[in-house]
Lab assay of single mutants.
Amino acid sequence: NMVHPNVICDGCNGPVVGTRYKCSVCPDYDLCSVCEGKGLHRGHTKLAFPSP
């Protein structure tokens, strides 16, 4: 899995490795796959980016 450079997960404050989930509503909100799997930020649609 690749690390998305200059992207920090807003759920756990860790690096985003593998798929990046970017909120389509909020201007700067990203989740890693673990936090997305936990259902964080469920109210907004997210775009999935498998690689940087």
Rank of each mutant, 00 (worst) to 15 (best):
V16D: 03
L31W: 03
S51T: 10
S33W: 05
C32W: 00
H4N: 15
P50C: 08
C26M: 02
P5R: 03
N1M: 08
S33V: 07
V3K: 15
V7E: 09
L47P: 05
D28H: 13
S51Y: 06
M2Q: 08
S24V: 06
H41Q: 02
A48H: 12
D28M: 07
L40E: 11
C35I: 00
L47F: 05
G39F: 02
D30V: 09
D10I: 10
G18Q: 05
G39V: 02
R42T: 15
D28I: 07
K22R: 10
G11M: 07
G37M: 08
A48I: 15
K46D: 03
L31S: 04
G37P: 05
G37E: 14
A48N: 07
P5L: 15
G18P: 03
P27H: 08
C32I: 00
H44K: 01
S51V: 11
C23R: 02
Y29T: 03
P50E: 14
P50I: 05
G14E: 10
Y21D: 02
R42V: 14
V17D: 14
G18V: 03
R20N: 06
T45E: 13
N13T: 09
R20W: 11
H44Q: 00
D10M: 13
V7D: 06
P50M: 08
C23D: 03
V34E: 13
C9G: 01
L47D: 13
G39Q: 13
G14T: 08
L47I: 15
Y21C: 02
H41W: 02
F49G: 10
L31Y: 04
M2H: 01
G18S: 04
P5Y: 05
G43Y: 11
V17G: 10
A48P: 11
C35Y: 00
R20T: 09
L31M: 08
C23V: 02
G37I: 05
N1C: 00
N6R: 10
F49Q: 14
C26F: 01
K38Q: 10
N13C: 07
H4V: 13
K38D: 05
I8A: 10
P27W: 04
H4E: 14
S24L: 03
F49S: 13
H41N: 02
F49H: 14
D30G: 08
N6D: 11
N13D: 04
V25L: 08
G18M: 04
V34W: 04
K22D: 01
V17I: 15
P50D: 14
K22I: 06
P27Y: 05
G11P: 01
H44A: 02
G18D: 08
P5E: 15
T19A: 09
T19M: 10
V3D: 08
R42P: 15
V7Y: 12
R20I: 12
K46V: 12
C23N: 02
K22W: 04
C32M: 00
M2L: 03
N13M: 06
A48M: 15
L31H: 06
C12V: 00
T45H: 06
C32Y: 00
L40N: 13
H44M: 02
G39M: 08
H4Y: 08
T19L: 07
P50G: 08
G39D: 08
C32V: 00
